[in-house]
Computed example of a mutant assay.
Amino acid sequence: MKIVGHQINKHLINLFDYKNVHFICVEINNIPNYAKELIESIKNTSWIDKLDVIGKLSYTETSFETIDKLVAIFSVSEDPISTDFGEYLISMTAGSSLEKLLSHEVLPLSELWKEKKSGNAGFDFHTITPRKLISFGEAKYSSVRNPYKAAIEQIVSFINHEKGNRDLPHLQIIAGKESIDNFLKGDKCYCAAFSLQNTQTFDGIIKKITSLTEFGDIIHAGNEIFVIGIKICHP
């Protein structure tokens, strides 16, 4: 994984307030080797060891079942890659990018700690910013297009349906009290991550994203916004 671009746009909300929006461009090379790295990350269950007794009882069985499923998906990194593999790839790369570039703490992949029911279960990944704000992330993958609009629209839908609130019983256990207290005060962040066909088009995509009405909705809802375009390089 290589971060190839990062720019910060300040969006004015009113005369006394503005929101930082980070636009980050990433490349992934050597998919088989990278998939092996992600498998090791998925298998790392040290986060469970840090939980209290109730947390360990709650998440151990669910996590290990999901780990087996994800390892099977990540072990088949054929070209073209599957949609499932692609979306997990985008989710985990986005989290790693925020950790590397902006010192976020990456929480375990959502599917490791919440049961996935029919329909869209909610946000795909979460991180904690250095200011102890929870960032709610949505990942979209396509082999033929740049699905930035789908990611943006999905986040707005989740905000309108208060999907972040539904994660609170879990986040209260794994994210820490300060982050939860900030969330309850209305302080939170959002991240839209999507596959990118070509890094050279990222500046043009930024212009399209900032013109979306839905993007303005996200800016007003979050304290800080992260937009991550991820180019998956094929041999």
Rank of each mutant, 00 (worst) to 15 (best):
E138G: 11
S58F: 08
N44F: 15
K207P: 01
K69A: 10
N33P: 02
N33H: 14
E178W: 08
C191W: 07
G95H: 06
N182A: 06
K132M: 03
I39E: 05
L51R: 03
H11C: 10
E162K: 09
Q200F: 12
D124W: 04
K185R: 06
A151D: 03
V71W: 09
Y59G: 01
P108E: 06
I28K: 13
K207S: 15
H11V: 10
D203A: 00
G119P: 12
P32L: 08
N120K: 15
N120M: 10
S82T: 04
K163C: 01
A175C: 02
S75C: 00
F85M: 01
T213Y: 13
I28H: 09
N33D: 15
C189E: 10
N182M: 02
D124N: 07
L102P: 12
L212F: 12
E153Y: 07
T93W: 15
S143F: 11
T210M: 14
S58I: 06
N165Y: 13
E105I: 06
S77W: 08
I90E: 05
S96W: 15
W47L: 04
A193K: 06
E65A: 13
I48P: 11
V53F: 04
R131C: 11
I205N: 12
I205D: 01
S58W: 11
V76D: 05
V144Q: 13
G122E: 06
N182V: 00
N223I: 04
I218H: 14
S96G: 14
T66M: 07
D49F: 13
I232P: 02
F202C: 09
T83K: 08
K116H: 10
I28C: 09
L102E: 13
H161F: 06
F64N: 09
Y190I: 01
L212W: 09
L51Y: 06
K207Q: 11
G137M: 05
Y18W: 13
G229P: 08
E162I: 01
I54K: 11
K117A: 15
K56V: 09
N223P: 07
F64K: 03
N223H: 14
T93D: 06
S41W: 07
A175D: 07
K43C: 04
S77E: 02
K69W: 00
N120P: 08
E115I: 11
H126S: 12
E65Y: 03
I228Q: 14
H6S: 05
K140M: 10
I159M: 10
L57P: 00
L212H: 09
F23L: 03
I205L: 15
D187W: 10
E61Y: 09
Q7N: 05
E37W: 11
T129I: 09
Y88Q: 02
E162F: 14
R166Y: 10
S82D: 00
A35L: 01
T201V: 14
L15S: 12
N198V: 05
W47I: 05
N29A: 12
F194Q: 10
F136A: 08
L102K: 12
I8S: 14
D52K: 10
S82W: 03
I13N: 11
V156P: 13
I152L: 14
F16D: 08
K207R: 04
